[in-house]
Amino acid sequence: MSYCVPMAPDVSLRERKRRAIQDEVSQAAIDLFLTQGFDETPVGQIAAKVGMSERTFFRYFATKDDVIDHVSDRWRRRVVLAFAERPADEPVWTALRRAFDDYIAETAATGQSLPVMRVIYKTPALHGRHMARQFDWRADLTEALLAREPQLDPFVALTVVGAAVGCFDAARETWARSDGARALDVLFDEAMAAVAAIG
Score class of each variant (00 low, 15 high):
D169W: 12
R172H: 04
P9S: 13
E143A: 08
E15T: 15
A105G: 04
E85T: 09
R77P: 03
D31N: 15
W175Q: 05
S12F: 10
M192N: 05
A164Y: 04
I46H: 07
R129E: 12
F83A: 01
A125E: 14
T94C: 07
E15K: 10
V25Y: 10
T41D: 04
T174P: 00
A84F: 01
E15V: 07
A163F: 03
M192Y: 02
M1L: 15
G199H: 11
P91M: 02
G162F: 06
A163L: 11
W93G: 00
A48R: 13
R172V: 14
S178F: 10
V67L: 01
Q112C: 11
A108E: 12
F38V: 09
E143I: 08
M117S: 09
P115I: 06
W175D: 12
R55D: 07
D10H: 14
Y121K: 03
E15F: 09
D89I: 01
V92F: 05
P115K: 13
L145F: 00
I21F: 07
T159M: 04
F188V: 00
A194T: 05
E149L: 13
T56I: 02
M192F: 04
A47Q: 09
L126V: 13
G44C: 04
R77C: 11
G44Y: 07
L146Q: 06
R59C: 14
A125P: 00
T35R: 15
V71K: 01
D31H: 13
R78S: 14
A82W: 06
R78A: 15
E143T: 09
Q134E: 13
I198F: 00
Q22T: 02
R77N: 15
R18G: 03
A181I: 00
T142N: 08
V161C: 03
A197M: 10
D10T: 12
R182N: 14
G128A: 11
I104W: 03
M7C: 10
A144E: 03
Y3V: 12
T107I: 05
S178H: 15
R78I: 03
S53E: 05
S26A: 15
V116F: 14
G51I: 05
S113R: 10
A28C: 06
T107N: 04
R118G: 08
A108D: 13
V5Y: 02
V165E: 04
G44M: 04
P91G: 12
R133H: 14
A8D: 13
A20H: 11
L34V: 03
R98C: 00
P150Q: 00
D73P: 11
D185M: 00
R76E: 01
A48P: 08
D101Y: 04
T35L: 10
Q151T: 08
D189P: 10
